[in-house]
Design a protein around this nucleic acid. Structure first.
Length: 574
RNA sequence: GCUGGGAUAGCUCAGUCGGUAGAGCACAUGCAUGGUAAGCAUGAGGUCGUGGGUUCAAUUCCCAUUCCCAGCUCCA
């Protein structure tokens, strides 16, 4: 397994060299920076002397083809830094890289007339790079730092076989097809009004229905799992945010304050301080803990204009937030329970695969080191106990504590950050949160912040793309479209609809179009899971003809029989 | 925020090398009364993102601005 990915990496890395070689040939004077292999391909960053456009890509591809046909060998050479500086004299980015390398030798790879500073490995010969394609052009900062110069990045991909390349391009097209912004419009689920406020979501009736089903399920399961529900305001005086530390460490992400009665108020970017206020309304005994308080809390965060993206990255969103207040001896168990709860919820929504990350203390943070270590240790232990495979993401924690992030893998194997579990020793300190222990002394409360779905907006977007708009029956906003063939069956259609509604099924009559074929087509366009078709024959027999979006014609059946099928499928949440 | 591209009817898009614009779908009306993936006809719809400039004349050219898209950086 490992060697296979290494081989693919070498192939992609080699392709990036060939691309750089082609670019330098076609555009002399271009400075080249770095060109690694990445998850689905490779890129190379350049500083061009003139403006580049995507039209240039096919020319570069052509030149690459020529290099490949020349069957140039990749040759590794160890040279001294001094020699390297000579070779890359006109290449400032390479010189900077050489300076950053330890020791006084560097390795280079040469093929044909092209040489690059590179630790390899590569394939043996350019002819091995057969099935490649350049994909797009984009800006990228030198060394990924926004203070640095912006370079031009060319993305490409290469696979060992034509079949795999085609498959990858097919997945890219599929992803475009099921883009949640496209489906959201087509299925009339939500909208964003750029002129009225970018990054703010309007849920239409069908989208709102899905959200309602998600929320109902979420609340029910939380209550079952020992949580209690909260509702808190959307604004608070700035003092609260000074205490929590947000004005210091989260300022860039907050909307500006508003002045009310000479006082500064702040729109909330997080829910935690509000939950803490509730905690502090009374003395808590060690017997009260753990307290598990959850809220579908809407928060507003300022996001830079360029990062907004449909439902995935917005400025106003509802977190499925909860805070668990507990004693130190309860911490481990609570984290484990939370992890298990996350997995259960995600599985129910059809997500079976995850990537788990443990993010540790960032540079900008509050609290002392010991507390951070304690918190990181607690998360790590819990992960080990649950047996989940995880990776450490150093420095990626939140300013008040480390976290476990669970990223969902969707149907197209893309990952999405949704769930997060954060241990926090710091904010309880800042708010002086305590409980009275069994020895009568006050002890510091520990807090876990967690969101399972992350934000309802993002989760909905992921869910939409994961299912490609074909929601499982329990989530579908309209579960059954009733299609009368002629106007004479209108009354019968209404009676069927009422019967379904009485049984808690979301049914609608589709009689807008004139032809049966068109009605079926339009129901399919909206991804309605079931159609119940009624014509003369069905009315006479007191039945309906059932058609399934994913299963074709199921034939005629009694309405009660149909209801049983629907109820079973809804119950199973499949 | 940065780099590049873009903004034309409700949606998807075409177009005018400067003389105020068009298609398909959707919508409305009429015809058709249809049996399992798009019936036919007619009609209504746009100060061509916003503000300024050049010009006899700007949707088109120039500048600014807002927003969108692909990335970068950042993130639920």
């Amino acid at each position: 397994m490992k060697s296979k990915t290494d081989k693919l990496d070498a192939l992609r890395h080699s392709a990036s060299h060939i691309m750089a070689q082609a670019v330098l040939k076609l555009f002399p004077g271009t400075k080249f920076a770095i060109g690694p292999s990445i998850e689905n391909g490779f890129y190379y960053d350049f500083e061009f002397t003139e403006k580049m456009s995507e039209e240039a890509l096919s020319g570069i591809e052509h030149e690459m083809g020529r290099i490949i046909r020349e069957e140039q060998e990749f040759i590794c050479e160890e040279i001294t830094k001094k020699e390297a500086r000579g070779i890359f004299g006109g290449q400032p980015y390479k010189l900077e890289l050489i300076d950053g390398i330890e020791g006084d030798k560097v390795s280079t790879y040469r093929n044909g007339d092209f040489i690059d500073l590179c630790k390899g490995p590569h394939v043996r010969n350019t002819s091995e790079v057969k099935h490649f394609k350049l994909l797009k052009l984009a800006g990228a900062y030198w060394r990924g730092d926004e203070k640095n110069k912006m370079l031009t990045r060319i993305y490409g991909t290469v696979f060992p076989s034509e079949k795999e390349l085609e498959e990858y391009i097919r997945v890219l097209e599929l992803a475009k097809e099921r883009d949640h912004r496209k489906l959201g419009k087509e299925m009339d689920l939500f909208s964003i009004h750029e002129d009225i406020g970018p990054g703010l979501i309007y849920w239409h009736p069908r989208g709102a229905m899905i959200r309602k089903v998600i929320e109902d399920f979420w609340r029910e399961e939380h209550i079952k799992n020992g949580y209690e529900l909260l509702f808190t305001p959307h604004i608070a005086k700035i003092d609260l945010w000074n205490t929590s530390g947000h004005t210091g460490f989260y300022k860039d992400n907050m909307f500006s304050t508003m002045n009310i009665d000479e006082m500064e108020y702040q729109l909330k970017p997080m829910n935690c301080p509000f939950h803490i206020m509730i905690y502090k309304t009374g003395l808590k005994s060690y017997r009260d803990l753990p307290l598990r308080w959850c809220e579908l809390g809407t928060v507003y965060r300022y996001e830079k204009s360029g990062v907004l993206h449909g439902l995935m990255r917005v400025r106003g969103f509802t977190q499925d937030d909860a805070h668990i207040f507990c004693r130190e001896d309860q911490l481990q168990e609570e984290i484990i329970k939370t992890i298990e709860f996350v997995i259960f919820i995600l599985k129910t929504f059809g997500f079976e695969e995850y990537e788990v990350y443990l993010s540790t203390r960032p540079e900008k943070c509050v609290g002392d080191l010991k507390m951070w270590e304690k918190a990181e240790e607690a998360l790590k232990k819990a992960l080990i106990k649950t047996g989940l495979v995880y990776e450490v993401d150093p420095g990626e924690g939140v300013f008040y504590g480390p976290k476990i992030d669970i990223k969902i893998k969707d149907a197209l194997m893309r990952t999405w950050q949704c769930s997060t579990i954060q241990v926090d020793f710091n904010i309880p300190e800042r708010f002086d949160m305590t409980y009275v222990d069994n020895d009568g002394r006050e002890k510091r409360t520990i807090m876990i912040h967690r969101a399972l779905l992350g934000s309802l907006e993002r989760f909905f977007g992921v869910l939409l793309e994961h299912h490609g708009g074909r929601f499982p029956l329990w989530l579908a906003p309209v579960q059954v479209d009733i299609i009368p063939i002629k106007e004479e069956q209108a009354g019968y259609a209404v009676s069927i609809m009422n019967k379904l509604k009485e049984n808690g099924i979301r049914a609608r009559i589709n009689d807008k179009d004139s032809k049966l074929g068109k009605k079926i087509w339009s129901s399919r366009q909206m991804n309605v899971p079931y159609m119940a078709i009624a014509g003369d024959k069905e009315v006479k027999e007191g039945r309906i003809s059932v058609r399934k979006l994913t299963g074709g014609d199921l034939g005629a059946m009694e309405i009660d029989n149909f209801i049983d099928i629907l109820k079973e499928e809804i119950f199973l949440k499949k």
